[in-house]
Design a protein around this nucleic acid. Structure first.
Lengths: 223, 223
DNA sequence: CCAAAAGTGTTAACGCTACACCCATGT
DNA sequence: ACATGGGTGTAGCGTTAACACTTTTGG
């Protein structure tokens, strides 16, 4: 707490674990590293916090640098601070967890990375640093969040069908849910609103489109 | 993430929010500061992380310096990192939240503090830095934790009565609970075990003493 | 015998789970 | 007409919440 001049030299970084849903499956955004010793390996997008910059701002800045997202749910996850987690010196990483709507945004690969890509959560490779731990932790937080809050809205587009909503839950929880029971719960919570429009996209009955009544974080019990 | 030589100079501190139960009420451990500009103000006990020291270790070290606790529940809470939260420069604080058994331990006042004392949660003064925010956040975490996990054990002595257990819940949640329903839930969870001993302490029927079957953290649904 | 806290069951309301058939559309 | 996903109701079960009197002890 006291900032007396000690010879502490710790770098402070932020790493983002960004989730989205593509084709009813859960994806995580990874970058491929250019520099040794992790050259070619995949990792979470991150960077050092600027000297005069709040942590949340740093996370947002880094997130915007990689995706062009504006409509994003962002929340601090956990701070990882093992002494030897980085080979170059002591770096603690404040991990953030972000949810973005079904990725229609264009990714841009920054010069500092070899590449940027969405990875299916179930097929993640071995990541640099302790990033596998971070992702695991973030996934757990995500599971809790969608069961006890209304954050799903941040994974869905403006308009969506009940089936899309349900598939999103199923993708994250990794289990099937009964259609009728699911709808009963969702309706009982009054979180969503029918639009009186139909989604027509296949050789079958069109589905009603819905939107969220509110996109503010709320605590609710969903499943 | 990358520890290239930037001119980042951020100090990393740990602050502990330590709870206990005294006379069926919730208390927080505070220290009184000696130095300006917060001289005389109360704050959470904390300190800078040592260069070669894991964050959890730092929290534990600081905790042991203030109380002589060994049997403690400790968990990382949140990282507070607003740019101007400390007047002397940029300091981010990784807040920890700790639960210790009904405080029979002796507090020691370190030379660096004016005094160390347990404060009733409901009567907290205005604290230094952003420590009121930290305590509020920790209290919230505590409420969730006792409802969804078995951490209460870390607030109770080895042997306790059902009433003590219930009073602990009531102190934290700030509401009364029905005795019969409470006992049903607790027994159904099979977390505790009668000792066949009675607590005799007043002009009334003696109460059965119990202990926890296990003192390992578990996820359970209690209330 | 009185005061104080311990101990103990039942009922009604509600919420959860399991489960199957018809509907609207495009081909 | 058929294939595909959309939309809808009920019954049984378990869980929760509300509620009051008797027991054991010390003074």
């Amino acid at each position: 707490m006291k900032p007396h001049p000690a010879k502490q030299n710790i770098k402070v970084a932020v790493d983002n674990c960004i989730f989205t849903i593509i084709d009813n499956e859960l994806y995580v955004l990874l970058i491929q590293m250019k520099k040794r010793p992790y050259q070619g390996m995949w990792a979470l997008p991150g960077g050092l916090v600027n000297q005069p910059e709040n942590l949340d701002k740093a996370a947002l800045r880094i997130l915007k640098d990689e995706t062009n997202v504006t409509d994003v749910y962002l929340e601090q996850l956990y701070t990882f601070g093992k002494t030897k987690r980085d080979v170059f010196g002591r770096v603690i990483s404040i991990a953030y967890f972000a949810l973005i709507p079904s990725a229609n945004q264009q990714l841009k690969t920054l010069a500092k990375y070899q590449s940027v890509q969405w990875w299916k959560y179930v097929d993640l490779p071995k990541l640099a640093y302790d990033h596998n731990d971070i992702v695991k932790y973030a996934k757990q937080r995500l599971e809790w969040k969608i069961e006890y809050t209304n954050v799903v809205w941040s994974l869905l587009p403006e308009k969506f069908t009940l089936n899309q909503l349900q598939k999103t839950y199923e993708a994250i929880l990794g289990k099937e849910i009964d259609k009728r029971n699911f709808q009963k719960k969702i309706f009982a919570l009054k979180l969503i609103q029918p639009l009186g429009q139909k989604a027509m996209y296949g050789a079958h009955r069109p589905a009603e489109l819905y939107k969220f009544r509110s996109r503010k974080p709320k605590i609710v019990q969903i499943l």
